[in-house]
Design a protein around this nucleic acid. Structure first.
Lengths: 192, 192
DNA sequence: CTAATTCTGAAACGATCACTTCAGAAAGAA
DNA sequence: TTCTTTCTGAAGTGATCGTTTCAGAATTAG
């Protein structure tokens, strides 16, 4: 019938995601976003929608690639306990090497309280992450890599909380050693 | 000489703090702030300064009262270990009972990366909190309430990170039991 | 080709942003 | 009381906010 959309939506979302990631939802302006995406605002509104709809696509993209990476890393591990240890060490490395803090955590504290839709996406991501880690812990326990009295459900919540705290710690102190020591501490705790 | 300032600055800062706390720095408008403070923007700019200067006063006020409360609670405890246990339980109760997440954490993730002055204030608060908890752990160890091989420095970072994570967990799940279980888990861990 | 449809770019929308101006009210000093 | 200084309230500053409009370019169907 007629003309097709010129820009690649996936690439544009990726660019917008980076802007939201760095600046947060409120502080990112439509100008910032359209400039980074290299499209006109009319095209954006015609295809994706308003600022909020764009953010939804961006945070979904972030959580999905985040989960995909976590699962891929878990599959590559030699054993369940090893997958967990890698997950902890990878978390530390990501925190240290990336210039921004995790977008999921930033978004949770910025807008999850006032935005049902965003909260739902973050919850869904949280549940998936929980399940991944929980099943690893259950499997590790079954294989005798974990203490018999270990409680995977509590350990999962506990480890995920700890990792979130590491992000805050690194923003404040920018001290890799603090994170590595904590990771070693908790790994040792799990292993014995 | 002349007329005096009409409004009570301390009360006005308190009101502004609540607005920043709820909405965050970017999303709080000067209108929101002056309305809550019940003063005209000209008075605000004449006495306190611009939005950023106001925020500095608010976050300082928050951190100072936060620290004061923590120290007061610690002094009221029966023993060092008891002070730590109380701190953990009080943290859980605060998270559950307050409608907003901790302003310090929210601010860290929103603007600490791009704002040296705010980062400095948050670091100062972090250092004070660290010292409080570290000295409690050292004292508990000295009094035999902690295992001999316990490392207060690492434990301090570790507990503070965990508490930060609890805030995120509660935003997502609003599940008091998860927090209580984690608190019990870590208290048991410390006590043995 | 022409007609039909859709997308793009530039300009502009009203609203709101942080912030400023200034006349006049208020209050202490002499 | 009068002078002097300072604070307040209302109005307004230009800039930027998210969003819309629409003429014209682009593309496909017939």
């Amino acid at each position: 019938m007629a003309r097709n959309v010129e820009f690649n939506e996936e690439e544009a979302i990726e660019k917008a995601m980076e802007v939201f990631w760095e600046k947060g939802y409120s502080a990112a302006s439509m100008r910032d976003l359209t400039t980074a995406m290299q499209i006109n605002s009319s095209s954006l509104y015609n295809t994706i929608g308003d600022k909020h709809a764009l953010f939804v696509k961006c945070i979904k993209h972030y959580t999905e690639s985040h989960m995909e990476q976590a699962r891929k890393r878990a599959r590559a591990a030699r054993s369940p306990l090893n997958a967990i240890i890698n997950l902890l060490n990878d978390s530390v490395n990501d925190i240290i090497n990336k210039s921004n803090s995790c977008m999921i955590i930033k978004t949770t504290f910025e807008i999850a309280n006032d935005d049902e839709e965003i909260l739902g996406i973050l919850k869904y991501n949280g549940d998936n992450t929980y399940q991944l880690l929980d099943s690893l812990l259950q499997e590790a326990k079954k294989q005798g890599e974990l203490a018999d009295n270990a409680d995977p459900a509590i350990l999962t919540d506990y480890l995920l909380s700890l990792i979130t705290g590491w992000h805050e710690s690194y923003i404040l102190h920018q001290d890799p050693q603090r994170l590595r020591q904590m990771a070693q501490f908790v790994i040792k705790q799990l292993s014995q």
